[in-house]
């Protein structure tokens, strides 16, 4: 039995690739902003228009939203809902699962349509899924970035004095 939840990390190269893929998606779909959130509620990346809300709180609620809907899916006999859509009067959001570990949230307004966002999102989801699968595979095996906290016991002690 594993001790607890696995740790994962991503490098600046990963970040660059994620950002590039999302920027292209935003350009193609005319959506305003894309956020990536991990299933534990931590914000991974934000691309596009800078959100006016608190992105940390937003990330947490997104993960909770997705988890709650996963359970609802199970209750009706589905494995999960791999995407969710929340419609507002002016602003809407579309959420999609990436490699079962990360959630892509897209915010868009009436400058585009749900159809276009969905269509363009499919390719981005595939791209990001591949990217994140590689990141998680690396976290599980060799080739992970060196543990920056290794041997930092003294520094940790000092932080909490």
């Amino acid at each position: 039995m594993p001790v607890g939840a696995a740790s994962w990390s991503f490098t600046e190269d990963d970040f660059g690739a994620i950002t590039k893929s999302l920027e292209r998606f935003l350009f193609d779909s005319n959506a305003r902003c894309a956020l990536l959130v991990d299933r534990a509620g931590q914000l991974v990346a934000t691309v596009g228009e800078k959100p006016k809300f608190d992105p940390t709180a937003f990330a947490t609620l997104t993960a909770a939203d997705f988890s709650a809907n996963d359970q609802l899916a199970k209750l009706i006999g589905e494995n999960d809902f791999n995407s969710l859509f929340h419609q507002g009067e002016k602003e809407s959001m579309y959420l999609a699962d990436i490699a079962r570990r990360v959630i892509l949230v897209v915010l868009f307004d009436n400058r585009t349509t749900l159809g276009l966002v969905r269509l363009k999102m499919k390719q981005t989801v595939d791209e990001l899924s591949k990217l994140f699968e590689a990141v998680f595979k690396r976290a599980a095996g060799a080739g992970a970035p060196p543990n920056i906290l290794a041997g930092a016991d003294d520094e940790i002690d000092k932080l909490f004095q």
Partner: peptide, 15 residues
């Protein structure tokens, strides 16, 4: 599931 973000230089943990 702690997350180490090398791009923003953050370690995120959940308690």
């Amino acid at each position: 599931m702690s997350m180490i973000n090398y791009a923003s230089r953050e370690i995120n943990c959940k308690i």
